[in-house]
Simulated assay, not measured.
Amino acid sequence: MSEKIYDLHCHSTASDGVLSPTEVVRRAVENGVNVLALCDHDSIVGLAEAKAEADKQGIQFINGVEISTLWTEPGSGRGIHIVGLGFNPNSPEMTALLAQQAVLRLQRAIQIGEKLEKIGIPNAYQGAKALACGEVTRAHYARFLVQIGKVSNDAQAFKRYLSAGKPAYVKADWVDIETAINVIHQAGGLAVLAHPLRYNMTNRWIKRLVADFVQWQGDAIEVAGCGQSREQRQLVAGWAVEHHLLASVGSDFHFPCAWIELGKSLTLPDNVTPIWTQLG
């Protein structure tokens, strides 16, 4: 019998993905995934739909969310993503935190639209909102800018307009990492440091981030993701072992593409402890 394929980090139209929760589950099944967690940005509205489809398809479903946080250590604050897995979605602490994050997301989305208006791109908020099934994110603005011909792809939209230092960038005042971890724990879940090598930091700073995460009682780190080299995976696995963190896996799937796909290349090294040993 072949080993199970886990994918514990993916997105749907409940945040900035392009497939509905049902479609995400079906695609995961087509790709051989046996255990799936939907982790939309600061949103759990897609969990019930995804769980219903997972039950229908006969695969295990784990409640997930990706919480946007700020790490203040580098000075001005850096956005870091903390994934919560296996929590109670009806937890009052989780409900309150996500409601707070939703307010921040709305404020940020409106401000981005106002900045685009000032540089000659009118009705951007309305255009981005038309592309979103829920909260409006920078990804929806990127798709809108592609749609109206300002850029040729999403990456260009971020590079020219939406990234830090660009004309339409708006910094968000997210919750701090320690609070996010505490809320995940209060809801009965495990807290995971998402994609640690994708924060555009030196290894020195990433190691400080991991140390802070451990100090704040974080549980796991994403060791396996799409598009990694063997050396990168071994590096993160080493941090997991050094800090006694559980090892998670996740494609961070948002839309169908060749290099990031549900269940693709998510094998863990032998020297780590998989997070599913603690998920039940």
Rank of each mutant, 00 (worst) to 15 (best):
Y6R: 01
F158Y: 15
V83S: 01
H81N: 08
V25C: 11
E23P: 06
Y6N: 03
W205C: 08
G188K: 11
E222S: 07
G127D: 09
G46N: 10
W174Y: 03
R143L: 08
F61C: 06
A99C: 02
W259P: 04
D16L: 05
K129W: 04
E178K: 11
C39H: 08
A191L: 12
A157T: 00
G134R: 11
G84S: 11
V18P: 00
V214H: 10
W216S: 10
Q101K: 10
G46W: 10
S163Q: 06
L106C: 02
T273D: 08
I5N: 02
R138W: 02
E66Y: 07
N90V: 05
I44G: 05
A237E: 01
V65G: 03
Y161G: 07
Q186T: 10
A224T: 02
R78A: 12
I82W: 13
V249T: 15
V136T: 08
A168R: 00
V24K: 13
F87I: 11
Q232Y: 02
R138K: 09
R27C: 09
H243F: 15
D40Y: 13
I44S: 04
L235K: 14
K264D: 02
V272A: 13
K207S: 13
V24I: 15
F87C: 04
I44R: 01
K118C: 03
E23S: 12
R160E: 11
A96W: 02
I275K: 05
P256G: 07
G280N: 15
T273N: 12
L98G: 03
P269Q: 12
V236W: 02
A132Y: 05
I184G: 10
H195I: 05
V272G: 10
N90Y: 02
R27E: 15
A155I: 04
A240S: 15
L85M: 01
D42C: 02
R143Y: 03
D173P: 00
A155K: 14
A157S: 09
